[in-house]
């Protein structure tokens, strides 16, 4: 039994560390990418993968009690609001006329 619990702890550490790496990758992407529309995608790596892995790791680490419920609540909330706010940013930018960058640095709109 205790070996099983220690195994769970190791899984929790792996989850937390890989979640931290995903958050760094998301931040790095939002620094490296060339234009606004690609930066949106880099930020959504943090919003989905990093949040899931970090909260899952913390939940496994704490065991099953009220803390797990709070973590679940934070996770559900971030899952609903993360996409909503990034859609809001994207929509505001689209309305204000920022168009995606093409490879030859031409301005372009929608193409079918």
């Amino acid at each position: 039994m205790s070996i099983f619990l220690e195994f769970l702890q190791v899984i929790a550490w792996i989850c937390i560390l890989s979640g931290g790496i995903l958050v760094i990758i998301g931040a790095l992407g939002s620094l490296r990418f060339p234009d606004f529309w690609s930066r949106l995608h880099a930020a959504s790596v943090t919003d989905s993968g990093g949040v899931i892995l970090l909260l899952l790791g913390m939940g496994i680490h704490s065991g099953f009690n009220l803390i797990t419920f709070k973590l679940l609540l934070i996770g559900v909330f971030l899952f609903i609001t993360g996409p909503t706010s990034s859609h809001a940013v994207a929509n505001a930018a689209w309305v204000s006329g920022i168009k995606p960058l093409r490879k030859k640095h031409k301005k372009s709109g929608i193409d079918k």
């Binding site: 993360g82 706010s85 940013v89």
Partner: peptide
């Protein structure tokens, strides 16, 4: 919009940081 986007992801990271 770049600034708003980075403010938003800074907030998400702050939530994780506090946890």
């Amino acid at each position: 919009y770049d600034r708003v986007l980075s403010t938003n992801s800074f907030g998400t990271q702050t939530v994780l940081f506090i946890g």
